[in-house]
Design a protein around this nucleic acid. Structure first.
Length: 284
DNA sequence: CTTACGGCCTGGGTGC
DNA sequence: TGCACCCAGGCCGTAA
């Protein structure tokens, strides 16, 4: 499942392959995950790739249109759960569920594959790009401690839900949320408003450390994630809690538990990450 | 207003 | 060999 580190790894791969390339033609398979397929077919051919950026879990391919440079636009890509991008020779075998092909002017092909099609693709003009990015949360690697703290403490929701909410922080998914909370020794059901300064500092550090280390290891390949060069990540070897139910906590030896928090299966150590006091209200 | 929760989309993996 | 079920991220509707 691509989260921030996986998307960053893909972005780095694309930065080595796309900038300066011109898109010659576009071929689409299933299009139900594309906001406006006709716009893709109309606007992309002839355009030239400027830069490739990442914001949270979004990949942003900046494009210069073929007719004059005045109307630049971008291609927003969200990989969803199973989205994969490769840049390969056109004769490379076509992976099943590949639905987007761009022929590039260096003879290679950009391909988007997505088994579940939970991903999203949309063309955005320069203006709508700004308003769209305005709705996306802070990138956790760009947020300062003060911004992070303000965000967490501004809401009563559980810390797990806060970290997962893409409107607040953009880029954290289930794996890195659980790993960060374990490292910071904070229970997933703690309320944001109740977090102490020291805890917020620990969590902020933990989030950054985990994400940066995962990026260095090219992400986590828990199911079939591969980057744009087809390589698997290796951070899954460093997971301390994710999918380790019943195994020993690396810190204290207690058995890792799994519970549903914020609608997601959540892994934590019941000893290191102490649960908040029962905050069951009223029910008599 | 806020937060919680269930359902929906899809299809591979799992377990009976 | 079949097949019901689970699960994932984002989003939306509804309830409290």
């Amino acid at each position: 499942m691509p989260e921030l580190p996986e998307v960053e790894t893909v972005a780095r791969g694309l930065r080595a392959a796309l900038p300066g390339r011109r898109i010659l033609s576009v071929r689409l398979g299933k299009t139900d995950f594309i906001e406006d397929p006709a716009a893709m077919e109309r606007d992309l051919p002839g355009s030239k790739v400027g830069s490739v950026r990442r914001h949270g879990k979004f990949l942003i391919v900046e494009l210069e249109s073929s007719n004059g440079s005045a109307d630049n636009f971008s291609l927003f890509i969200h990989l969803g759960m199973t989205g994969q991008i490769v840049v390969c020779p056109p004769e490379a075998p076509e992976a099943p569920h590949t639905h987007v092909f761009f022929a590039l002017d260096d003879g290679r092909e950009f391909r988007y594959t997505d088994v579940r099609r939970f991903g999203k693709m949309r063309i955005l003009s320069a203006e709508s790009r700004k308003s769209t990015l305005g709705k996306v949360g802070l990138d956790p690697l760009e947020a300062t401690l003060d911004e992070f703290s303000a965000l967490v403490r501004s809401r009563r929701a559980r810390i797990k839900a806060l970290l997962l909410d893409q409107h607040g922080l953009s880029g954290m998914g289930n794996i890195y949320t659980d790993e960060s909370l374990w490292r910071a020794r904070i229970h997933p059901t703690r309320l944001g408003v109740h977090m102490k300064d020291a805890e917020l500092r620990r969590l902020y550090r933990a989030v950054r450390d985990i994400l940066n280390q995962a990026i260095r290891m090219r992400g986590s390949s828990v199911s079939d994630y591969v980057d744009s060069e087809g390589r698997r990540g290796s951070f899954q070897q460093r997971h301390k809690v994710y999918q380790r139910k019943g195994k020993k906590c690396f810190r204290c030896g207690a058995l890792i538990r799994r519970a549903i928090v914020a609608g997601r299966s959540s892994y934590f150590c019941p000893r290191c990450q102490t649960a908040p006091r029962n905050r069951r209200r009223s029910s008599r």
